[in-house]
Write a protein that binds this DNA or RNA. Sequence first.
DNA 1: CGTTTGCTTGAATTCTGTCAAAGCAGGTGG
DNA 2: CCACCTGCTTTGACAGAATTCAAGCAAACG
Lengths: 204, 204
Amino acid sequence: MQHFENTVLPSPEQLGMLRSFTEQLVKPSEDEWAEFASCMRLKHIPKKGFFLRAGEVCSSVAFITRGAIRYYHEKDGNEYSTNFTFENGFATDYDSFLTRQPSHYSFSALEPTDIIVFHYNDVQSLYHRSKLWERFGRLIAERIFIEVQRRKNSLVFDSPEEQYCRLITDCPKILERVPQHMIATYLGITPVHLSRIRRKVAGK
Amino acid sequence: MQHFENTVLPSPEQLGMLRSFTEQLVKPSEDEWAEFASCMRLKHIPKKGFFLRAGEVCSSVAFITRGAIRYYHEKDGNEYSTNFTFENGFATDYDSFLTRQPSHYSFSALEPTDIIVFHYNDVQSLYHRSKLWERFGRLIAERIFIEVQRRKNSLVFDSPEEQYCRLITDCPKILERVPQHMIATYLGITPVHLSRIRRKVAGK
DNA sequence: CGTTTGCTTGAATTCTGTCAAAGCAGGTGG
DNA sequence: CCACCTGCTTTGACAGAATTCAAGCAAACG
């Protein structure tokens, strides 16, 4: 199997970011950490480059050490953004990753982006060999479940205006680093409508 | 801690349902299964009774052996249904269960319902003691993640009419066993609008 | 039988999208 | 330095979609 990533190791700084993140959930021993680290591959994605294109099976999970990745779906010639992930977050189509089905989504970099990549077979192998990494996998799955469920419910219960206001307080990174027309489709509305909502909210 | 469940054991039939479900994901030994079974508590919920009320912390996970449970959210005096679970499914506010925060949702029985209940401490104890149940927890979390993510994306990308048509084929149980006005809020629309969609779809 | 509950329908209102045009900034080349 | 792109946001006018309110029906139930 051919990998296009660099084979160089993550820098100490990059490793530190991932280790801090990981240790919020589990406390690996040095051996366990070494096992985890042996699965890492470094990759750089230039601005507007792709981590995944719709139609491909998502064969890896990426931890972002720098930059931002946007998830989007194409329909009728338009692009609908479904999520954004920044440094210190994981980017993947976990559905496609787990089910080995082609993804309906594309992932492209909004900024020059550095990621640490874990391939499917390596992840499954970690799960099988180690109770600790099995546990880590559970905690990650629980975490992203909660995230997507909260967002789903917000889409149903909250008006676009409420969602936008919540974004201002909960997730200012998105407002600062993502073009407005992408935020609009993320909220399920048109860029035109978001513009009007902003005017209305600003006038308060 | 006081439990209101019966202390009687599940019937062989109920146990069989849960075991079949479980063995789709993991293959427990007899000892492991016994450990699992020791955590079970039986409970009956009458029609219109509650499994959980908004404001309470969800302290358990329920496997439904008979009946149907509806999840809903109250806002501005209206009820918005977010999910329905039937026999052979798990019912819980997994967000509240995991985070130990009060739930924003109520769970009530649409029909007389029998459930097998697992309490938080027992579940966590299973996770800690056994790699197999840790794995089971991961697979369950992955499964419900995929389910809620697909539903979220359907809410954004599909028109109410498309969603309704999909429901007809993918989930006829809901149409047969859930009142229409609850389905409407589940689809993010008003009962009036769903009625009009039905007329339109029927005319084809 | 009368009441309740839930579904349908019509009319008026509000919300949201479409289309087209204009503004605004940053970047580039002359 | 300026003129001109180009990509993004804002605005206005209009059309279509969805909600609200209110009335009418039908089936289910005590």
